[in-house]
Design a binder for these strands. Structure first.
Lengths: 332, 332
DNA sequence: CTGTTAGCGCTTTCAG
DNA sequence: CTGAAAGCGCTAACAG
């Protein structure tokens, strides 16, 4: 790999001049400029980003902590939103997975910090508020996505999960359902699971329906988990005419289980999901769900991170995203 | 951020000694070692990875080029496999998306190279063989995933798409189907699309069935595209009793369209997908598909990259992955 | 406009 | 076992 020195030698100028044309940081005589450009091309020179970062104290990297890149389309969509804006700013994204585990999240954040990321965007589920607040005290700007950390509202991008759960459940109640099952994650670290569940309970209460723990099924928050949880609910022999799910993936699994048991949807059981993942409108039956604008939220988080970096004003930007009910076939 | 100098001062040793305890690169008197450790902790010291990389010529980063992180679970699963092994090696992953576009892929690769990645793993669809061969000539080890570059077999990890397409189509023929539609990508840059289609044609020919262009539907390679392509096929008024798809996502969309038209699956039309994505077993009906072990392939690619880096021998490792038919309900 | 020079934080000889 | 010193490749004053 050629260095700036090689280029300067070949172009018969000093390294400063080379640096100047690389960074366009001062006027350079046209002829020398040409010579430098030619030499760079000939040597296939590309500045060593580490040397640049070392001296300029800027890595041009935004570090992102996600739960699990593979946990369905959720994080992929989030990343897509972030990448779009980070890319536009000519910066790079470094992604690490925390797998929703406290120790791994902590380790990943340290690694990102050690990489001298200019800013961090964290989707942390497992770390306590206190630790996040401590982190935010450091000199690296940090944005939290999908979580509202008390006192750090301006650095958070979050979703009204409770409201969403409530809206979804209310729809079912309005349709006349009284026995509404809830299929959710068995991992209490999922704050949003607890919040959605709270919304569900809010709506039940509003409707004068007593919360019934036996109507709650828990398992891993993916298709298979939904299948399992629904299987247990059925085995338990409880009665319900509707199911609300923590997310669309679980609900897809739950539906699969219901259909296997010959239960008609929405004829016998109505189903509502959460997230509106890409394939929600292609399931059978098409899923009624609560839209979660994760891609836009990813964009917003990235925009906030960049704004913080540049000291730009972003006080007025929206940080709280609202649920929106998408009604399709799976409810009656 | 504390530097090695701060630590050395606090611990009353030279920076060399600090470096030694950081890297465990030589014996250090236990007491000094303790002092250094204590100082590091007190100052919350973390070595500057750029300075390390600059001098050691090692970034500890593996650069990965993917198509589109959001193009369904495919890349996400691939990344999961890679991350697992890269993480285990205590290295980092830098991901960039090429979006299947030539210019963007080229740009992303340059960016990765400039970041001094120790090795690259490329999922390139759009770049011509010649350019990849040229790239591989450089001093950064490169692995190609999901593509067989002529002459670089040992640096490739690929899948027998043609065989898979053939197997899938053969299953349908064995079941007595003669009119088999094919739903695929409208983007010719998808080499694997062309290969799978070739396998489909192989099987047709073997079965003495004439290939019929009007039985091919093309659209963007996701659920929506599958829905659209199937809609066109139906509008075209062609007759078919089975559908083969480029991938499961398209097939899910196609099924949705068929069901909307009141067509029974597999009663009236049998359907076979490709990839065996996570939700394939939770669709209605459950998808018969060709398993694509992308996660393992991601692992293998990462293992190869690391082996190349360390100059380890990996001649014997499997690079070609074989299709495996997964028969579920969607076929009769 | 241009070249010289002093580091950025760290690893790695090379002498003790 | 330990410290001094020489860079890694680059940017940013500073002095022409």
């Amino acid at each position: 790999m050629a260095t700036i020195k090689d280029v300067s030698r070949l172009a018969n100028v000093s390294i400063s001049t080379v640096s100047r044309v690389i960074n366009n940081t001062a006027q350079v005589a046209p002829e020398k400029r040409e010579a430098v450009l030619a030499a760079m091309k000939e040597l296939n020179f590309r500045p060593n980003s580490f040397a640049q970062a070392l001296v300029s104290k800027r890595s041009n990297c935004i570090g992102v902590l996600v739960g699990d890149l593979c946990g369905g389309p959720f994080f992929a969509q989030m990343m897509r939103g972030m990448e779009r804006v980070i890319d536009r700013a000519n910066k790079f994204t470094i992604v690490m997975s925390g797998n929703h585990a406290e120790a791994r999240e902590r380790h990943a954040i340290q690694a990102l910090l050690q990489r001298q990321c200019d800013a961090l965007i964290l989707h942390s589920m497992a770390l306590p508020d206190a630790e996040l607040i401590e982190l935010a005290r450091g000199d690296t700007p940090i944005i939290f996505i999908n979580r509202l950390v008390p006192g750090l509202e301006s650095q958070c991008v979050w979703f009204d999960n409770r409201g969403g759960g409530s809206t979804a459940c209310q729809l079912l109640i309005d349709k006349g359902h009284r026995n509404i099952a809830f299929v959710t994650s068995d991992d209490d670290a999922f704050v949003d699971g607890r919040q959605r569940m709270q919304g569900y309970r809010d709506a039940l209460e509003r409707g004068g329906i007593t919360y019934d723990e036996t109507l709650v099924g828990r398992a891993y928050a993916d298709e298979q988990g939904g299948y399992v949880a629904m299987g247990e609910l059925l085995a338990r022999g409880v009665t319900f005419s509707a199911v609300l799910g923590f997310n669309d993936a679980m609900v897809a699994g739950a539906i699969s289980c219901l259909l296997e048991h010959g239960i008609q949807i929405p004829g016998q059981v109505s189903v509502v999901g959460f997230d509106d993942i890409p394939y929600a409108r292609y399931t059978y039956p098409k899923l009624t769900t609560v839209r979660y604008p994760i891609e836009q939220m990813g964009e917003r988080a990235a925009e906030l991170a960049l704004a913080l970096l540049d000291g730009r004003d972003c006080e007025q930007w929206v940080r709280k995203f609202a649920p929106e009910l998408v009604i399709r076939e799976s409810v009656s």
